[in-house]
Every structure is written in structure tokens, then in C-alpha cells.
Design a binder for these strands. Structure first.
Lengths: 110, 110
DNA sequence: AGGTTGTATAACCGATGGGAAATATACGAG
DNA sequence: CTCGTATATTTCCCATCGGTTATACAACCT
């Protein structure tokens, strides 16, 4: 995964409206108007969010008559998840080492 | 984890410089100047990034004489990870169901 | 063809991000 | 006290975000 790709993915996730859209899409495809409904936002506002999600590859859009149904694309999420996971493990390993060190120090001077 | 907290965390992760800083800090504490060194950026630029990371709770800073060593705080990362993970699982479950459906359809009409 | 619904685009606005440069502050060394 | 180092803060710039309203485009239905 390129750095730019991670940029776009995390940036797309950094907005509550977009995370809510993703949560909604987790239950299945939805049209733009169906996504507009639950929010107090205008349709263009939602379309903008969808474009950002699309740019990050988090969703793709089909064509059904004049509707453009959105669906989730799980791969970029998996990649972001992988990045987070690997660093989390690394950090936790570091903290474990730190804990070990502290334990050692405590034992040396009780 | 509050929505605002997730906002700040993902926003902080959406910049390659900040991710690089986190990667550097994964190897242990570092001062501001040590973090400035590997980049072509000015010191104030790095200080800004550190402030954003601090705001998201991803790092904390100590005090050692006139230095302000930065260290990683793993908890918010774990929380972001948890959010991603849960949605990823949900989406993958959805895709699995879709796959099952497709398999079923294939078997019906071979 | 004309009207309606679904979606996208444009133009605009205020807030914020990411950067540079300059300056201020805080601390330690001599 | 002064100098140098480490860091923070201020000021300024430009680009982008997130929202609005108004408008255009596209596809369906009479």
C-alpha cells in the first residue's frame, strides 16, 4: 500500500459522517438519497463525502437506472487495518520491554 | 471511544510525516530535534505535527532539562484499531454472505 | 415533448491544515 | 549575565475541507 493510499484512507475515516455512511453501507448497498435521509445534510454534501470515500477506494458505485448505488470495498480497509495492527503490535512489544525493564529495576532495589 | 476521539486519531494518521514520526517513536522516545533530523521540514513544522499527535492522544511528552521527549501512547491506536477491526469483520461477513449467495445461484443453474 | 426524480457540478464561504520564517521562551553552560 | 541550545509561538501564505444554495445533467414516466 502506498503512502498516498494510506493518506486518503485515514483522511476519509477522519469524518463522522463518512464513518456513518460506511456503517450504513455495511448493511448493504444504498443509493445517494438513501444515504442522505438519515442526516441533516444536503444531498450535495453527501455526494462530496461519497466522492472522498470513492477517491480512497473505500466504496465503489454501480449504475441502476438513474441511481448510483454505493457499496463498500473492503480491501483498503483491510490494508489500513494491517498498518495499524502491525504498528500496534510493535508498540505494545516496546511497552512490554519497558515493563520488563521496570520490573528488573524494581527487583534490583526493593 | 467518542466520535471526536476517532476523528482526531484518524486525522492524525492521515499524514505521512506523522506516521513516520510514530514509526520513529516505535523504536523509543525521541526529542523534537531528533525527530526533525530525518525530515526536510523545519522545526516548527514538526512541532505542529507533534501537537496534532498529542491532541489525538497518540503521544505524550515528558520533561528532561530543556528537552521534551515524546513517546507513543498505545491506547488510542488500539481503539482505532478496534473500530477498524470490527467494521472490517462486519464487511467481510457481508461479502461472505454475498459469496454464499453467488455460490447458491451458480449451483441452481449450472 | 414536458415533468419528475436522482445525482453531479459550480460557485461561494468560513475554518483548518501544512508549510516557511521570524521571534519568543526556557534552560543549561561558562 | 551572556551565550547557545531546545522548543514553542506567532505571523503569514496557499490549498483543501465541509458545508451551503443554485444549477445542470440524466434517466425515467406520461
Amino acid at each position: 500500500m502506498t503512502t498516498a493510499h494510506l493518506d486518503a484512507t485515514f483522511m476519509a475515516l477522519a469524518d463522522p459522517t463518512r464513518r456513518a455512511i460506511l456503517a450504513r453501507l455495511a448493511q448493504g448497498e444504498a443509493t445517494v438519497m438513501e444515504l442522505v435521509a438519515p442526516f441533516k445534510l444536503s444531498q450535495p454534501a453527501i455526494s462530496k463525502h461519497l466522492k472522498i470515500l470513492e477517491r480512497a477506494g473505500l466504496i465503489t458505485r454501480g449504475r441502476d437506472k438513474q441511481k448510483r448505488p454505493c457499496r463498500i470495498e473492503p480491501q483498503p480497509l483491510a490494508e489500513a487495518n494491517q498498518w495499524l495492527e502491525s504498528y500496534r503490535k510493535l508498540w505494545e512489544a516496546n511497552f512490554a520491554r519497558l515493563d520488563d525493564l521496570l520490573d528488573e529495576l524494581k527487583q534490583q532495589k526493593p
